[in-house]
Write a protein that binds this DNA or RNA. Sequence first.
RNA 1: GCCUCCAUAGCUCAGCUGGAUAGAGCACCGGUUUUCUAAACCGUAGGUCACAGGUUCGAAUCCUGUUGGGGGUACCA
Length: 590
Amino acid sequence: MNFIVAGAIEAVKELYGQEIAENVINIQETRKEFEGQVTIVVFPIVRFSKKSPEETANDIGAFLQQNVAEVEGFNVVKGFLNLSIAESYWIDLFNNTLLRPDFLAVKTRGEKVMVEYSSPNTNKPLHLGHVRNNLLGYSVSELLKADGYDVIKVNLVNDRGIHICKSMLAWQNWGNGETPESSGLKGDHLVGKYYVVFDKEYKKEIETLVAEGQTEDEAKKNAPLIKAAQQMLLQWEQGDAAVVGLWEKMNGWVYAGFDVTYKKLGVDFDKYYYESNTYLLGKDTVEEGLAKGVFFKKEDGSVWIDLTADGLDQKLVLRADGTSVYITQDLGTAQMKYDDFGMDKSIYVVGNEQDYHFKVLFLILEKLGKSWAKGLYHLSYGMVDLPSGKMKSREGTVVDADDLVNEMVETAKQKTEELGKTNDFSEVDKEDLYTTIGLGALKYFLLKVEPKKRLLFDPAESIDFQGNTGPFIQYTHARIKSLLSRANYQFAVADYNHIKLTPTELEMVMLLTKYPNEISEAAKAYSPAFIANYLYEVAKLFNKFYHETPPIIKEEDAALKLHRLNICKIAADVIKSGMGILGIKVPERM
RNA sequence: GCCUCCAUAGCUCAGCUGGAUAGAGCACCGGUUUUCUAAACCGUAGGUCACAGGUUCGAAUCCUGUUGGGGGUACCA
């Protein structure tokens, strides 16, 4: 639409003798109820024309009609100048963008971006909150790839700490040597089970102590179990063979379990970092900060940074006893990741409960003068809540990731069988299809919502398969594929001499042309939701087109038939590509 | 207390840097299949965009305040 902007600027210059900036020309698509395809909002121009909005619009409209070949006509409604663009312009657009083989090709930028996501604790299985994180992280990675970045997907596994000791201790005390093999439980679920056991027993101890007269806070500190867990953590840090051995064994179970879940969700990583290797990092950075005068030491030996001038607080970066806190590790880990990859940008996919932490982290790195600090970004997303409130692994009030996926696949199976369209599928193909559809529904459900918004999930209400859903878009793709194969479609550019686009076809062309732009907008905002909503529009419009167009296969006008099949083909390509960005597969049949 | 995010139809969500009468889906009601897949299409109904001010030719969108909700503000991670 650049030629319209240019034309309008020219018009203002010729008509009113004024040089105006590009952003004065405000262009939008014409609303359906009016004639035309492109609208200029003339209000901003009025102060240059010194005429009423209507007069200004008429002046500019007349100028454009006369001087810009593509502008065939115009009408003015209040301060809106609606332009009718020549049919041939749209046909050319169709041929020169959509039908080009490089329409969906990625243009590399030669910039590296790291996306860190998932980052689970190894003491419990993944739940719906983690699912949102994983899908977001994976999808944002795909989105950035589509926008031309080289992407490194990283998982920083939180494999050490008191929480793991809790599971280990409970297993030692009450596990009777239970293993994934002996119990038939998935490793992460087995370990998670003992995390819950710990919490239950711990609470019992607190109750007893409170009954004996201690305050709740005292009891929490004095309970034998928590002391034992702390002791275990200390032993782990000292390299106690028995503790480390148990830790390795139980972590191994968890990893095996996570692998299954990751595979099922379709997410993967280029690089794993383990906190057991990184938790001591960051002390060099603290030294560096002290030397540069960015940090200061208090009398007790603890190290701090004063961020009050930036509207934040004083923040501890190293304990008095010289041990690390969370942010110490993150400072060190950030440096290590940069040393490893030298990326231009680094995205942390982490929940919004850590907004403050990342604000501080990035600010500190900037103050330390790290050139790469400006490329850091916290992709903050809202928690997934249940109607009953927050999910808590300790208390077992979570929607388990594996259960949820299985339920979705089961639901997909039921719905598909009810429709009876897969009777001639092989068993393997059926299972495949149910998984594709079930996961499609789940992924789309989670990704269509703006990341930063919190999400309410009601397990009692199942995720839809109709309307603005993954399966609807998958269905649209399958429908097109079926049509193309029945038509024995072969790609070729149609002869457009006598073809006129219908209004819906015109809409399709305009919508499909927007796809590359949609990707870069979504990438800029790190928001797969843009893509999801865009694809829904494509699918919806396609179904309208499909419904109102007479059977294409029976069309006798060869050029018209080819033209319509081309629209179908591009719609299918865009859907497949976009769904790929969301990590959703699209079936050929369903 | 302070910081921060959120509030749009009964429910779940769109609404880009301010632009025309605020849009979808679900649910509800009604219609469409001797034509390429009805997981579809078409229609009816449903709104004081939390509230109150302000800026502007124009505000769901920007600013201020109020209310309600989430999160944070640990020598936890």
